[in-house]
């Protein structure tokens, strides 16, 4: 093995953390969505790496399903965003507090 497995995992961890930061810190809802996609992709990298190094197919299959779910999630999430934006024209997440009830 020329590139150790651990390198891939550390790369994945770093990108994931950046995604977490983006999700928690940004005000723009769209960027928060993009951050979620970022996190999903970082996980995909580690899954594909495991799949390759352990010589099993499961990892790749899981990546495939993660991509499916990500597509569904993006579609629904953005639809909710649009529906929300129609009523309250803002996407600043710290001005949205409907959950307060």
């Amino acid at each position: 093995m020329l590139v150790p497995l651990s390198w891939y995992i550390i790369l994945s961890a770093v990108i994931f953390s950046i995604g977490v930061f983006g999700f928690l810190a940004r005000r723009n809802l769209i960027i928060m969505f993009i951050s979620i996609e970022l996190m999903l992709n970082s996980v995909n990298i580690s899954l594909a790496a495991f799949s390759h190094y352990l010589q099993v197919m499961r990892g790749q299959i899981l990546v495939f399903f993660v991509i499916t779910v990500a597509a569904a999630e993006a579609a629904i999430g953005l639809a909710i965003l649009i529906a929300y934006y129609k009523n309250n024209p803002t996407i600043k997440v710290d001005e949205i507090n409907l959950l307060k009830g």
Binding site: S6, I10, I18, V20, F21, A25, R27, N28, T90, D94
Partner: peptide, 28 residues
């Protein structure tokens, strides 16, 4: 709409993200 980029909680967020990175590297 895009004037102010970060929420007020961004320092905590950064801390958490850093701890995430450290923890997951430790898992390796």
């Amino acid at each position: 709409e895009t004037a102010q980029k970060y929420q007020s909680q961004w320092p905590i967020s950064m801390g958490i993200a850093l701890v995430f990175a450290i923890f997951m590297t430790m898992i390796v």
